[in-house]
Design a protein around this nucleic acid. Sequence first.
DNA 1: GATTATCCGACCTCATTGGTAGGATTAGCC
DNA 2: GGCTAATCCTACCAATGAGGTCGGATAATC
Lengths: 154, 154
Amino acid sequence: MIFTTKAEYGVRLLVELGRHEDDQPVSLKAIAEAEGLPLAYLERIVAKLKKADIVESTRGAHGGYRLARPAAEITMDEAVLALEGAVAPMSCFVDDRDGQRVLCSHRSDSGHLCATKLLWTRVQGGVVEALRGTTLADLVSFSLRDPELVTVNG
Amino acid sequence: MIFTTKAEYGVRLLVELGRHEDDQPVSLKAIAEAEGLPLAYLERIVAKLKKADIVESTRGAHGGYRLARPAAEITMDEAVLALEGAVAPMSCFVDDRDGQRVLCSHRSDSGHLCATKLLWTRVQGGVVEALRGTTLADLVSFSLRDPELVTVNG
DNA sequence: GATTATCCGACCTCATTGGTAGGATTAGCC
DNA sequence: GGCTAATCCTACCAATGAGGTCGGATAATC
């Protein structure tokens, strides 16, 4: 399995917020009930989204969360990055500072390259491309379609 | 992180076998020493590859493992599938019988679709595409190049 | 000041990962 | 036949992280 429930719950939370863009802020309690997710756990998840400036909050009564930007400007790669911490296919893959290059920490004793580096690099490329090509607005409008009519693949 | 060390070690094992195509079978002990991996653990990993008919074995003295097919005909998606059990981005993604379609087990109570389905489907597509487009022969020849000359990405 | 909410940190349980131990089986070789 | 090198097989084990809970502090509204 690739992602944990942090990504799953976090994205669902974002979609829920995306459905109420331009509304009053939505409380976590409402989201937890709508999605059937544990409130206390959601609190910790949304904190990551806030730290990444994807979401903003209002405290106190009638407070809650809302998107920090329009849903169309929120790509899933930044969301998943914020939620999961990193998008690396293997533990030996470490981001360097600017998060662009990917390094393999293995030093092959036998003189040849760590053979898996090519493979994991390609896999990561595929994942990042898929994530970056999907915005929150895509997911929101997808979720609003008629369930009877939708097939994702085949 | 996406994959575990099973995939990492298993692929490295395959590359090692790929370097000795048309040779005598290679013992696990030799591979373990060349790659610096624990022998007992490799045994369990190679068992998965054998069950998937990617590798074949000869028992007894001077025995060992060799590829069941030419390296160019072994794609990484079958290897990783054999090693990791499944390539699904999320626990709610379950393969159906023929492994082609991917289903989300969530039933949305609120009437709308599980919003994340679109995202995970795309992500999985990216991963599978990267894996399927890479053969063992690619990795073997990559691993044989001069380390000084190689850059994978920038 | 009661209520509604975000914030924050400690804690807990369970499954999986990564690895070990010990032996049984099979095949070559003297 | 017996030694040795190898695959095979099952059970065990420690550490980690995932997933979740609890209790309270803080902030804003009514």
